[in-house]
Nucleic acid binder design. Sequence first.
DNA 1: TCTGGCGCGGAAAACCTATTCCTTAAGGTA
DNA 2: TACCTTAAGGAATAGGTTTTCCGCGCCAGA
Lengths: 336, 336
Amino acid sequence: MTIRDVAAAANVSVGTASKALNGQGRLRPETRRRVTEAAQRLGFAPNVLAQGLLGGRTYTVGLLTTDSFGRFSIPVMLGAEDALGAGQISVFMCDTRDDPDREQRYLDRLISRRVDGLIVTGRRIEPRPAVDVGRRFPVVYAMTQPLEGDDPAILPDDEGGGATAAQHLLDIGRRRIGHITGPERFLAARKRATGLSHRLTDAGVPFALADVLYGEWSERWGREAARILLDTSPDTDAVFCGSDQIARGVGDGLRALGRRIPDDVALAGFDNWAPMALGADPPLTTVDVCLEQIGRLAGQHLLAAIGGETVRGLRTVPARLVVRESTRAGGHSGSG
Amino acid sequence: MTIRDVAAAANVSVGTASKALNGQGRLRPETRRRVTEAAQRLGFAPNVLAQGLLGGRTYTVGLLTTDSFGRFSIPVMLGAEDALGAGQISVFMCDTRDDPDREQRYLDRLISRRVDGLIVTGRRIEPRPAVDVGRRFPVVYAMTQPLEGDDPAILPDDEGGGATAAQHLLDIGRRRIGHITGPERFLAARKRATGLSHRLTDAGVPFALADVLYGEWSERWGREAARILLDTSPDTDAVFCGSDQIARGVGDGLRALGRRIPDDVALAGFDNWAPMALGADPPLTTVDVCLEQIGRLAGQHLLAAIGGETVRGLRTVPARLVVRESTRAGGHSGSG
DNA sequence: TCTGGCGCGGAAAACCTATTCCTTAAGGTA
DNA sequence: TACCTTAAGGAATAGGTTTTCCGCGCCAGA
C-alpha cells in the first residue's frame, strides 16, 4: 500500500498524488478530491521512513534513563511526551539499567536511527557523565545534569523546596524542627537540607546542618530515625523528611512513641508520590517538584534545539508545596 | 556521514563498501580492512531508515499502554524490552492515558512508521477493545486481553495467586481467613477471590464468596475494611488482601484495634510492589505475578509472530508467593 | 491568427543502503 | 596462443516519498 497505488487508483502520477495529499502545488480541486478519496478508500498511510530519509528529519527522539523508568523518570517522560507528541514526534525508550555498555549500545542505535534529539533523565538530580553523540543531534538533560559540557539541563529546585517546607512549618507555628533524609552523598538530600537550614536560620530559629539525620531513602530508616530524633530532641514539634517514604516511616515511628500527628508533631515529606502521600493517615503534606513540568520543559527545550535555537545551561523548575492534614495548623498547643 | 563518504575515503564504490561492512560478497581482505578502517575513522553508522526502506522491516515495535506507564506497565515494559532489545529492536512508547482519540492517533503513527509489531498493555487484566491495525503487523496483549479476536494475550494467574496465598495461610495454621480487595467490577479482584475461596473450601475451611469485602484499591479502604471485618468476625486470624496497598491499610487498621501482626492476625498482600511490601512493618508476604516475566513472554511471542509463526489465544504466567514476616508461622496461639 | 501567459499535471532527481548482475583482468589449460 | 574460469569490484536497481523543473494545452490579447 504505497502512494503509487493511490496514484494509480486516482489516475494521476505519484507526484500529483503527493501534492494532493500534502496540500502542495497547483491542482484542480476535483483532482485533489479524487486522490484523497482514493487514499481514504485504500487506507493509505505515508511511509514515514521514506519521508525521513528524504527530509533529513525522522521526527523521533530517544529517551534515555538510568532509573529503570522508575518513580522519577515516568512523570518526566510523560511530560516530555506531551511536549513532543504535540510536535508529532515519537519517542524511543532506552533503559540503561545503570549499565554503561547498555547505554553505549542504546546510543549507537539512536545514532543509527537518526533521531532528531535525545533526552537524558536520571535518578534524583545526581550529575552524570555527559553522553557523547558528537554534534549529531541536540541533547537535553532532565532531573540530572552533565558532568562535562554545557548542554541544557532541567532540574527541580530542591533547595527552594526545602525552604518552602521550612516556611510552611514556621507559618503553622513550629519552632523545633528536625530533618530526616536520604544518604548524604545525594546532592538532592544536601540541597533540601540547605534550603531548610537557610530559611530557618533567617527566621531566627536555630538549626545546624550537623543536626540533619542522613540515612537512606526507606521507611525503615524513617522509623529508626524517629526514635533517634526524639531521643536527642524530645521536644521536637515538626519533622521535615527528604522523601515521602521516609515520612511514612517517621510517622509510624512517632506514633509508636506516643506522638500524635499533626497535633504533637507536624510531618512533611518530599516528592508528592501519590500512593505514599495520599495513603498515609493523616495524608502527608509534601513538596512536589513538578516532575511532569520538568519533562515538559525538557521536551520544549529539545524541540527548540531541534529547530535550530541554541539553548544552554541549567534551568530549575520551582517546587510546589502541597498542604495536607499532616501539618494542619494549630500547633502542639492546639486541640491535643 | 554516509556510506558514500566511507567509500570515497577507502577508494572503492559504495557497493563494495557495503559488502565490506556487512561481510558480504567476494573482496580482498585488504580491501575489507581499508573500508572498515575508514568507517571507523569517520564514525560511520549505517542509516537504519534506509535499511528499513529496503528490507521491508524497521526493527521497531510499539508499546501501547492505558496505564500511563504506571506500576503495572513499567515492569511489563522492561521485560518486553529485554526480549526485544536482544533482537536489536527499538520500542516506541505510546501512552494513551485512557483516551480513545489519543490511542487512535498513536496507532496511525505506528502504522505510518511501519513498526514490525505492537504490544498492548493494560491496567490489571481487564479486557479491552481490540486494537485495529488491519493485517499490517502482529499484536500481542500483555496484562490485558482483547474483547474481540484471538490475538495472543499474556496474563497473570490471578486465580492461582489467590489459591497460593490461601494454601500458605492454611499451611501456617490459620483457619478464620478474611479477604479484603478492590472493586468487584475488576476481573482481577474476582479471580483472586475465586482462587482463595476454592482452595479454602477444598481444605474444608468455610469461606463464602459473599464474605469478600470489595472496595477500592487504596490504603484508606484497607483501614476501614479492617474495622468492618473485625466487627463481624472478631476471631479472624488471617487476612488476604487484593493489593499491597490495601494490605498496608489493613495492617494499620488491625494494629489500631489492638491486633498484632503476625501473631494475632497474619497478613498477606498482592502485587509484591517493593516500596509498599518491603516498607511495611513487618514486611508483607505477598503474591508476585511476575510482571517482568509477562512482558518478556509478550516480547518473545511478538518476535515469533514477526518471524512468521502464528501464535493465538491466552497464556497465563504462574504467580509466585513471596513469604515475609507478616505471615511468619507459629499462629495465633504462638509467641503472643 | 499568432503569441504570451497561466493552469494543471507529469517526469525525474534526491535521500541512503543492500544486492544482483556485469565487467575487467589475470591466471590456467588445451 | 586462444579460450575458459575465477577473483575482485563496479554499476545499477529497488525501496517510498517529496520537490523541482518542465511540458502541454487552453484562453486571452494583439
